[in-house]
Simulated scan of single mutants.
Amino acid sequence: MSLITTRTAGVFVIAVTPFDETGALDRASLERVTDFYFEKGADGLTILGMMGEAPKLTQAESREVAAAAIRRAGGKPVVVGVSAPGLAAIGELSKAVMDLGAAGVMVAPPMGLTTNEQVESYFAQVVEVLGPDVPLVLQDFPLSTKVPISTGSLGRILEAHDSIVMVKHEDWPGLAKISALRAAEAAGRRRVSILCGNGGVFLPEEVARGADGAMTGFGFPEMLAEVVQRAAAGDMDRAQDIFDAYLPLVRYEQQPGAGLAVRKYVLAKRGAIASAAQRRPGAALPPAAVAEVERMLARQEAKLAALAEPA
């Protein structure tokens, strides 16, 4: 399997972890949803992310999910989230998944880092634990981690560690940070890949600012793929038109505590997974929310039909 690099681009879907109604891993659905993501245009996958319910898995289950997804991907790149409170756990899981054929690993800073110096020291320690040959994605997600990383601090981290080949950018608001990173590269700093998260809420603008694509989840990964392709090609109006058709559902997924339930409901409805179940703690969508999602899906279908290009 190829490794991610500073030139990696496209869409790496944050994969859900399928469970059955008892909370057990659904291994058949894991294979099915992996196929689904690639069939719908994903260039790669990121597994065991925050929306993959990674904290609810045991270490053994994490390795099992990684092994199954990497095997099913058939050589296409799979990045594995390995964030953990301690560096020993990060190092152990990283070695296991790289030995299985992962394309790289992703680490977010743990809560409790309050200064630029602490953040910079933390990633220096992560790189030391992983070694120089493991491609690393730095996840910049202060809304979740509560650890803001200034543009200057991020730049110093990138300058110090060549093995950090990608930034998963999901600061919010964060468009100016993308511009600043690219401006620094134009002035001579080494290039890194930038893939963006936050459910794709700002995806057209992020690509226009210089992002290489998306690393996020959504029940319609084909939207992410088409928007990135068209925006990267300079067809911003068409990219925005496609994005706008899906925007109500993208927005609805942003509800704290409900977003994963929405995403799994849509994926189950589309046949990508057998059940929308989450492992506890986690709840299914209530009937009122199901009705709202169904209405959005119907309107989305109508908008896409109106946008369909002539054969």
Rank of each mutant, 00 (worst) to 15 (best):
L3K: 09
T6P: 01
R7I: 02
G10A: 10
P18M: 14
F19I: 15
T22A: 06
S29P: 13
V33D: 00
V33F: 03
V33P: 00
T34S: 00
D35P: 00
Y37W: 02
E39D: 08
E39I: 00
D43N: 02
G44V: 15
L45C: 01
L48R: 12
M50V: 08
K56M: 08
Q59N: 10
Q59W: 07
Q59V: 11
A68F: 15
R72E: 00
V82R: 09
V82T: 06
V82H: 12
L93W: 04
M98R: 02
D99S: 10
L100F: 07
A102E: 05
P109W: 10
Y122I: 04
V126A: 12
P135K: 01
L136E: 07
V137A: 13
V137P: 06
V137F: 11
D140T: 06
F141A: 11
K146C: 06
S153T: 05
L154S: 09
G155K: 08
L158D: 15
H161M: 04
H161R: 04
S163Q: 13
H169G: 07
A184W: 00
R190C: 01
R190A: 01
S193F: 01
N198E: 13
N198A: 09
F202G: 05
P204Y: 07
E206K: 06
G210E: 00
M215C: 07
F220V: 08
V228M: 02
R230C: 10
A231P: 11
Q240P: 03
D241V: 03
V250K: 02
P256T: 02
A258F: 09
L260C: 06
Q278N: 12
P281Q: 10
A284M: 02
P286S: 08
A289H: 04
E292T: 13
E294Y: 06
E294L: 03
E294V: 07
R295N: 08
Q300V: 08
